[in-house]
Design a protein around this nucleic acid. Sequence first.
DNA 1: GTGGTCTAGACCACT
DNA 2: GTGGTCTAGACCACG
Lengths: 123, 123, 123, 123
Amino acid sequence: MDIVINNFSETPIYQQMYEQISAQIMKGELKSDDSLPPIRTVAKEMRVSVITVKKAWEELERNGFIYTMVGRGCFIAPLQEKELDLKKDELVKERLKKDMEYYKSLGIRYEELIEVIKDCYQL
Amino acid sequence: MDIVINNFSETPIYQQMYEQISAQIMKGELKSDDSLPPIRTVAKEMRVSVITVKKAWEELERNGFIYTMVGRGCFIAPLQEKELDLKKDELVKERLKKDMEYYKSLGIRYEELIEVIKDCYQL
Amino acid sequence: MDIVINNFSETPIYQQMYEQISAQIMKGELKSDDSLPPIRTVAKEMRVSVITVKKAWEELERNGFIYTMVGRGCFIAPLQEKELDLKKDELVKERLKKDMEYYKSLGIRYEELIEVIKDCYQL
Amino acid sequence: MDIVINNFSETPIYQQMYEQISAQIMKGELKSDDSLPPIRTVAKEMRVSVITVKKAWEELERNGFIYTMVGRGCFIAPLQEKELDLKKDELVKERLKKDMEYYKSLGIRYEELIEVIKDCYQL
DNA sequence: GTGGTCTAGACCACT
DNA sequence: GTGGTCTAGACCACG
């Protein structure tokens, strides 16, 4: 579990944690039924409040990424690869749509866009 | 000046206004030295608080899209086409970079991305 | 809005609040687009922490009972009577099922059950 | 002794065990002075902590369902049928009352309730 | 004025 | 040991 939080970002800490962990699960870096470190340990290591970690974990559980067994800890949910791909696609498409609307509203042409993207992917 | 605000969107109202007006200026739909309607009028029409409009206008002025003449109103700044293009590019690249980082962090491949974008541009 | 919380109950405060308010909405005692008092006011009146109220409100929003407009307040969601009935039915059936399983596992006969229920409804 | 525990249920494990065993005693499936298997054996078979089993047993003893003979094990208490019926009634009525309060608070009518219950008893 | 986030420290229930 | 809940008080962004 690798989390980097930016205290100055506008996106709240708990959301940064949620995004990074869910991404790692979707990429398969965290595997089914692996246990996560206790929230209090995470809190200490990340130097944030327990409640902040808890909030991230709750969101992860609500979205089916992890499950909790009180008194025993939290674990990565057993998701099939298909489910993971589905979740990923949903997220990306949702976000891309918004992005595209914005770019189009600025009058950006398709070719211009592709050029910048290529750059990012170093093609 | 055509603004549509969504009260339920996560992006704050003042920012929605800022984005739409700046886009219209960059696309040349609003021309240099044209006057903007008084903020109180805008507030009434859009059914938002004057404070909200004020905040959007301030943001526009700070970024050089409009200028204020006290007692007379606000006007579109006289921007050269080059300057406009520059502003546009800056904005887009900045945002695109963040987007790409996110997509890459989810392990999305270049080809997958292009496919969705093509879809948005109906190609 | 009428809430009675029991500090000694085992069900957490935020859940008691959630249950009572959602019930009032489903019964139509709270009407669409009515505004709820500010969470800080509620917190003071109920003598609980703001965070506790917030948690209840979040759950209400997640389940579509209220909606929030940052900086303006929280409002009862515009639910059709049909939707309300549906929500109610879901809840009741879910709970009843569990209850019935328990009663049956104790060997309670249908007739015995009905008798007690009649008593509760004073029939 | 037949116990099925659900690790993901909201009701704690020790309570699930308590409910199922007490029910079996009240239904007469477990008879007076029969011995229960050692808690360590139960713990292993159910794959739960010894502490959890202990807690369930304590609850059973506190409510008079079993008794302990130090060094020899735990045994089903010699309960008269009358006593058992009484216990059962108490339990059911207590729980039913709470349930009914909840259903009434949601505005469920008697007829609606009966219909769902009939369904559960397949009448 | 509104809601949104965060902290530090406390107490409790479950395993 | 684990997670679950709660508090009081703080700071920020939005309208």
